[in-house]
């Protein structure tokens, strides 16, 4: 035998699903939505995504090389995921320099200051988005119309959520088909519910995430909307009882947020039970903001607020121990 024997404690097998594999799978799961979004809003989508991804990767590289001076980890694809998710939270018409600022906030402030992947308490892409929303409210809420046409005069450039919130239209303004296929104004990633669900199934199949957090969030939101509809006289107009829940689940960033942002590993709880608490919290806070808050959409705030609770959840919610009643 040529070499020295290798010795290590058991186990002697390791999974082939490395961190980079997982992150790459997330990017693949986001591709269908990217395609749909490009069809809906045109090539601007690709421009914004490309700038965001490139900026995130470059910022992470520069910070690791010249500021932290630790090992380079851009090959683990996590910066790419952050880049795509940040782009998915922006309108297609956003100027390029705002994307750069968003990417800087996401990577430099929300991720690398805490020690990089796995140590950030808040979802970097969402921190970037919220920062931009506060700093550049006009650019961040100027939504381009779908290129395919003008069946949306009723919305006149507002997202469906905003239009419904201001009472301009009812929750039945868009058909189920339009909601699923993304025929509406909105950010890059939130318009294509069906494509996002395809990504969800892919992530489940690849065992990147489990169903608990997304399903809890969406079910909580639907139930919340159901009871609100009930209170708003749903007894008289039974159609509202299903229209309002469906509208809230499919419109806005509910699916993007629950499938791709709330399930971010380092900012979500470590246990299934903790994940359920986390999901319910996000669902409730989102609906509170959507219905009574200042913003038409509350998903990003809800996720960030619940991100802040994760250390507490991890401390007190333990997994079910074997043999302990």
């Amino acid at each position: 035998m040529a070499n020295k024997l290798i010795v290590a404690p058991a186990p002697h097998v390791q999974t082939s699903q490395s961190t980079a594999h997982i992150m790459r799978d997330v990017v693949i799961a986001l591709l269908p939505a990217l395609v749909v979004s490009t069809i809906v809003f045109g090539v601007d989508v690709l421009r914004v995504t490309a700038i965001s991804v490139a900026a995130c990767v470059v910022f992470e590289f520069l910070i690791q090389k010249y500021v932290v001076r630790g090992p380079l980890t851009i090959s683990n694809w996590s910066a790419v995921v952050t880049g795509v998710l940040l782009a998915f939270n922006l309108p297609a018409s956003i100027p390029w320099w705002i994307v750069l600022i968003g990417a800087f906030v996401a990577i430099a402030i929300a991720k690398m200051t805490f020690g990089g992947l796995g140590k950030n308490p808040f979802n970097p892409a969402l921190v970037g988005r919220v920062f931009l929303l506060v700093a550049y409210p006009v650019q961040m809420t100027t939504w381009p119309m779908p290129v395919s046409g003008g069946a949306f005069d009723a919305l006149s450039g507002a997202t469906p959520l905003a239009a419904v919130k201001h009472g301009a239209v009812g929750p039945d303004v868009l058909g189920v088909q339009d909601l699923l296929l993304g025929n509406m104004p909105g950010s890059l990633g939130e318009v294509a519910a069906l494509a996002l669900l395809v990504g969800f199934v892919y992530l489940l199949w690849r065992r990147v995430i489990t169903w608990h957090i997304p399903v809890t969030i969406l079910v909580t939101m639907a139930l919340f909307a159901f009871f609100v509809a009930l209170g708003k006289g749903g007894m008289q107009t039974p159609a509202l009882l299903w229209q309002l829940p469906l509208f809230h689940v499919l419109a806005g960033g509910a699916i993007l947020g629950s499938v791709f942002m709330a399930t971010d590993y380092s900012t979500s709880p470590m246990t299934v039970r903790g994940g359920v608490i986390f999901g319910i919290g996000i669902g409730v806070i989102t609906m509170l903001i959507r219905l009574w808050g200042a913003y038409p959409e509350g998903m990003s705030f809800a996720i960030l607020l619940m991100n802040a609770c994760v250390p507490l959840i991890n401390k007190y919610v333990k997994p079910k121990r074997f043999g302990v009643k």
């Binding site: 070499n3 290798i6 290590a8 992947l117 709880p269 470590m270």
Partner: peptide, 30 residues
């Protein structure tokens, strides 16, 4: 040798896969 050598360790990404895999319901990462 190819199968035997461990991959290089990186940092914990809090994926909770160890928690899900533990047959005794423990928190291995912690």
């Amino acid at each position: 040798e190819h199968d035997a050598r461990r991959h290089e360790a990186s940092q914990c990404i809090k994926c909770a896969k160890c928690v899900a895999a533990c047959p005794m319901g423990l928190e291995p990462y912690y």
